[in-house]
Computed example of a mutant assay.
Amino acid sequence: MKLYYTPGACSLSPHIALLEAGLPYDLVKVDLRAKKLENGDDFLKVNPKGQVPVLVLDSGELITEGPVIVQRIADQAKDKHLAPERDSTERYKLLEWLNFITTELHKNLGPLFSPVLADDAKAFFKDRAMGKFKYLENQLGGHDYLMGSQFTVADGYLFTMLMWATDRLGFDLSGLPNLVAYKARVAARPKVKEAMTKEGLLKAA
């Protein structure tokens, strides 16, 4: 498999999933602003959406949406329990979390990176995102991970959004102790550290 990624972008989520799954893969770095690959090729020829992540399967099939990509990865490594069994009640709970993260967090945090968005508009999106983080604070009470005691692909996605919020966008989550502890718990996982090191987000030990 091949993962097209940009360091620290939402492609960090499937990168974590691939490492947690123990699946072989190649990394291809993308300059999202220029829409170019490292070798100068046009990224839009790979993904006309112009976005990462893109996962290319060994069959040559392309998958381009993060929540779908991570489920495909999980289903190729069922022994790692990164997603519940298909059609199970728990699988639909995972889908609920993935949809919450992509629509309520990802799409509210994304505009905050815009250099042309007005400050009052940024304040609106930040306030909305904080409301979602407060919801998560309550949901994580007494749980190690979103689905309970088992790490799943939803946790890799939420962790990526928390990295955006705290490390890049200046969110103060200190008043949300469950969420702060959760972020630290996920960050301490060896495969999460490996993904971040490979993307240049952490210095190699």
Rank of each mutant, 00 (worst) to 15 (best):
H106T: 14
D41V: 01
P48M: 11
L57K: 12
K78Q: 05
L55P: 09
R86T: 08
F100M: 05
K80E: 10
Q51P: 01
K122P: 03
L112P: 09
G50Y: 10
L94W: 06
V70M: 02
D79Y: 11
L82A: 05
H81R: 03
H106Y: 15
K80P: 09
Q76A: 11
L112I: 11
Q76H: 04
K78S: 04
P84C: 10
D58F: 04
P67S: 00
L94V: 06
V46R: 07
G66P: 00
T103P: 07
L117C: 02
V116P: 02
P84A: 01
V70T: 00
G40D: 07
I69W: 08
I101V: 14
H81N: 11
G50R: 11
K107E: 08
A121S: 01
L57M: 05
A74C: 03
D79S: 12
P111L: 11
V56F: 01
E65I: 09
E65M: 08
A77N: 05
E61K: 13
V52A: 02
E104P: 00
K80L: 09
L62R: 13
V46G: 02
I73V: 02
P53D: 02
K49S: 07
E61Y: 07
D119M: 12
P115L: 03
D119W: 04
K107W: 11
P84R: 00
H106L: 14
R91M: 11
E104L: 03
K49V: 05
F113C: 10
N108E: 08
G66F: 10
L44N: 10
P48W: 06
L82K: 08
E85M: 15
K80W: 01
V116E: 13
E38D: 15
R86P: 00
R91D: 00
L105M: 15
Y92T: 14
N47A: 08
A118C: 02
D42F: 03
E90R: 08
D58Y: 04
P111N: 10
D75V: 00
L94E: 01
D120W: 00
E90F: 02
F43I: 07
F43L: 12
E104H: 13
L98C: 06
E96S: 13
P48Q: 08
S88E: 13
K122H: 10
A77V: 03
Q71D: 04
S88F: 13
